[in-house]
């Protein structure tokens, strides 16, 4: 299991397009990917799960990956979250 902590910096947080793309990215990995924020956890491969977590700007999140490609999965997703601009 790999866990990396990061901060959501973009203004609108993980809604709409950022969420949809996060899900698409997570689905490219075999590992189970979970995002933990404010004591809630969500499945990064389900858009409803991500939306329900309602992750806003300034939230500290932990990206957790478990599986064959866990290192790569966790790093790619953290990189994606950190690069969000809108």
């Amino acid at each position: 299991m790999v866990e990396i902590t990061t901060m959501v910096q973009n203004k609108t947080g993980l809604h709409a397009r950022p969420a949809a793309q996060l899900v698409a990215l997570a689905k490219t990995f075999q590992s189970k990917v979970t995002v933990l924020a404010d004591g809630r956890s969500c499945d990064a491969k389900s858009i409803f799960s991500v939306l329900h977590a309602c992750i806003k700007q300034g939230t500290e999140v932990v990206v957790r990956a478990e599986g064959a490609d866990e290192q790569n999965a966790a790093e790619s997703i953290v990189k994606y979250i950190e690069a969000l601009e809108e």
């Binding site: 709409a16 397009r17 969420a19 949809a20 793309q21 899900v23 698409a24 499945d43 491969k45 389900s46 858009i47 409803f48 799960s49």
Partner: peptide, 16 residues
């Protein structure tokens, strides 16, 4: 186009 992406992600959501 982005909106279509969002709806597509919802359509493919396994929980749903």
């Amino acid at each position: 186009a982005d909106l279509m992406d969002v709806q597509m992600a919802m359509l493919e959501d396994s929980f749903f």
